[in-house]
C-alpha cells in the first residue's frame, strides 16, 4: 500500500516537562497523494498518541493546521508529500509562542483582528424588512478577494516585520479592514482608520510581500496594505494641505 517512506521530524515541546523544544523523528510509510497532515495523523494513530497539533477540515478552508514545513509557513492539509524530499521537518508557526508541540498561542492575532472592527458598519440605516442592500457584481468584485481570508495566520508567520515588531497589526487584520472599507454597503472607514492608519498599523509594513506569497487563498494582503497606504496618504494631504475640503 505504501509508496514511499519519509522521515518526519516533529518539533516537540511540553511546557510541563521540557525546558526547550526538541525534535523527534518518525518513519512514516506514505502514499504519494498524501499531504503532510496525513503523515502526522499516521503518527498520532499508529506511532505516538502524544503528538499535539490542530486540524479539522482537511480541505484548506478551516485554517487550523498552519505550521512551518521545511521552514515555510504552510497548511499541513495542502502541503503535498510528493513536493518534498524524504526528510520533512514540521514546526509550529513562526512568530507565535509555542503552547505545546505544533500548537501555538494565537491570542495576539485574535485581539488584533477584532481591533480593526471587521464587521459591516452600515452606511445607511435600513431595516431588514426593507430588503437587501443592492450590490452589483462589479461592486462585489472590489472586495470579494479579501473576504476569502481563512484566518490561518500563515501571513503572520511569514511577515518579517511582525517578527521584529510584535505590535504590528499584521497582514490579515489590515486586509480585513480594507475588505469592509471597500464594501459598497459600509460606512465605517473613518472608525477603522484610527486603528489601521496608526504607527502600528499600515505604516509598519515594509512591503516585503511575503504575506501574499504564502497565502493559501490568494487574498493578496500585500496588495490590500498598499491600497490602504495610498488611501491614508490621500487622507493626510486632504487634512493638512487642503483643510478646506471635506474628506
Amino acid at each position: 500500500m505504501s509508496e514511499r517512506q519519509i522521515q518526519l521530524e516533529v518539533l516537540r515541546y511540553d511546557p510541563e516537562t521540557d525546558r526547550e523544544p526538541r525534535f523527534q523523528t518518525y518513519t512514516v510509510p506514505c502514499l504519494n497523494e498524501w499531504v503532510v497532515l496525513d503523515a502526522l495523523n499516521y503518527v498520532k494513530d499508529n506511532l505516538d498518541t502524544t503528538v499535539s497539533y490542530r486540524w479539522s477540515c482537511h480541505m484548506a478552508v478551516c485554517g487550523s493546521c498552519g505550521m512551518m514545513i521545511n521552514g515555510e509557513p504552510k497548511l499541513a492539509c495542502k502541503a503535498f508529500i510528493h513536493e518534498y524530499p524524504d526528510q520533512i521537518r514540521v514546526e509550529p508557526m513562526a512568530h507565535f509562542p509555542i503552547e505545546r508541540d505544533l500548537v501555538t498561542v494565537v491570542e495576539d492575532f485574535i485581539t488584533k483582528f477584532a481591533s480593526v472592527k471587521p464587521y459591516l458598519i452600515p452606511k445607511e440605516d435600513k431595516p431588514v424588512s426593507a430588503g437587501e442592500f443592492k450590490q452589483t457584481p462589479a461592486e462585489l468584485m472590489k472586495f470579494k478577494q479579501y473576504t476569502l481570508c481563512i484566518n490561518c495566520m500563515l501571513c503572520y508567520a511569514a511577515c518579517p516585520q511582525y517578527g521584529l515588531v510584535p505590535e504590528f497589526l499584521g497582514p490579515a487584520a489590515i486586509s480585513m479592514a480594507h475588505r469592509y472599507n471597500q464594501d459598497s454597503r459600509d460606512g465605517g472607514r473613518d472608525q477603522r482608520q484610527e486603528v489601521i492608519a496608526s504607527h502600528e498599523g499600515v505604516w509598519e509594513c515594509s512591503f516585503v510581500g511575503a504575506c501574499s506569497e504564502v497565502c493559501p487563498k490568494h487574498v493578496d494582503p500585500a496588495g490590500a496594505l498598499q491600497q490602504v497606504k495610498v488611501a491614508s496618504t490621500i487622507d493626510w494631504y486632504k487634512e493638512h494641505l487642503m483643510p478646506w475640503s471635506k474628506k
Binding site: 464587521y119 430588503g131 437587501e132 452589483t136 457584481p137
Partner: peptide, 22 residues
C-alpha cells in the same frame, strides 16, 4: 428569508444578479 436578509445586512458577500439583487 428574514434570516438570509439579516446576513446580507451584516455583510455576507452573497453572489449577485446584474441589477444588484441577491
Amino acid at each position: 428569508p428574514k434570516e438570509l436578509l439579516q446576513l446580507e445586512h451584516w455583510g455576507c458577500p452573497w453572489s449577485r444578479e446584474p441589477d444588484g439583487s441577491v
